[in-house]
Design a protein around this nucleic acid. Structure first.
Length: 317
DNA sequence: CTCCGGGCTG
DNA sequence: CAGCCAGGAG
């Protein structure tokens, strides 16, 4: 029953995935954490995709917790700024993410509300799915005009299922899409929920995706989008004290990380986590901030083969 | 904690 | 080719 259709925040933008290089996975946008005037709901032209696609817009100059007045705030770990900058430099050699690969132009023609819905659907599909697979699925949906709640509502679930294959868990996702389309129509006039609680109430949307959608669709950063990479790396860096779940990590991070970094941290660490700070055998020898990492060289080192692969990846850019 | 349903890694 | 991956639901 959320009656929050009209969102006060700013304009949405597009989302998702793409890169041409191999092992990439994330699909997030790095966007500026702009502060929006409540009354500037004047949806002018949506933010430029190119603008988002370029680099990570994290801060360059250190701003001591400019954040909030939250009393539960804790002191940040030492050197976190240096660590962040180091990771940013390593990541700068990689291709920037692209949204709605293959249908960027078409996405621009969508209304803000339609774009928000498309972002939600794309996010749903992207979870547990490799980028290139998700791209194909989103593009096929778009080609069949199936990124809108009304058309999804009218379509056969099996049709959707076939179109999004081989996205991870396509059977469930097809069902979620149908249910989300109905909810969108009946509760949000074709839009998507503008609050975390609203998004979390949707089938297939958990904390990770809910925060991502808040960032991308509503340009409203309520919390950090924590996935397995952010979770793992935060623990390795000692940025949080041995958290057991991504949700615990999110809450711990939010206690000290300046809000300006909340949105960019995910794409930053995801890329880092897929190349250097991998779950298994992290390449500490190639990591420029290994001197600042309490976990450096604590785990098995990569095999020579993997090491050369990574080196090669870095040199080719 | 297990299942989901593929792709990818070793 | 066996087993792991990864977010969410039951």
């Amino acid at each position: 029953m959320a009656s929050s259709d009209h969102n006060p925040k700013s304009e949405p933008d597009t989302h998702v995935v793409a890169t041409k290089k191999r092992p990439r996975k994330p699909q997030f946008i790095t966007q500026k954490t702009v502060k929006l005037e409540p009354q500037d709901q004047k949806l002018t032209s949506p933010p430029d995709i190119e603008e988002f696609a370029s680099k990570t817009p994290t801060q360059t100059k250190f701003k001591p917790v400019s954040n909030d007045n939250d009393k539960s705030r804790v002191n940040p770990p030492s050197n976190w700024v240096k660590v962040l900058e180091g990771i940013r430099e390593m990541r700068s050699l990689e291709d920037p993410p692209v949204f709605f690969k293959g249908c960027e132009e078409a996405v621009k023609t969508l209304t803000p509300q339609e774009r928000r819905f498309a972002v939600l659907i794309s996010s749903l599909l992207s979870s547990q799915t490799k980028d290139h697979i998700n791209h194909g699925a989103v593009q096929r949906l778009h080609d069949k005009n199936l990124l809108k709640p009304e058309t999804i509502d009218d379509a056969e679930e099996s049709t959707i299922k076939d179109l999004i294959y081989p996205v991870g868990f396509y059977t469930r996702k097809a069902s979620y899409m149908k249910r989300i389309a109905r909810i969108s129509i009946s509760n949000y006039h074709g839009d998507i929920p503008s609050t975390l609680e609203g998004l979390l109430s949707l089938p297939g949307i958990g904390p990770k995706m809910a925060h991502l959608v808040m960032h991308v669709a509503w340009n409203n950063v309520e919390g950090i989008c924590v996935d397995t990479h952010v979770h793992r790396i935060s623990n390795r860096l000692g940025w949080v004290t041995q958290t057991k779940t991504p949700e615990q990590t999110r809450e711990a991070l939010q206690k000290w990380l300046p809000k300006e970094e909340w949105a960019p941290i995910n794409p930053l660490l995801v890329g880092f986590g897929q190349t250097i700070c991998t779950p298994l055998r992290p390449s500490c020898g190639l990591c420029s901030i290994n001197g600042l990492c309490p976990s450096a060289f604590q785990e098995a080192t990569p095999t020579p083969k993997k090491m050369s692969r990574i080196k090669n990846k870095f040199s080719e850019s």
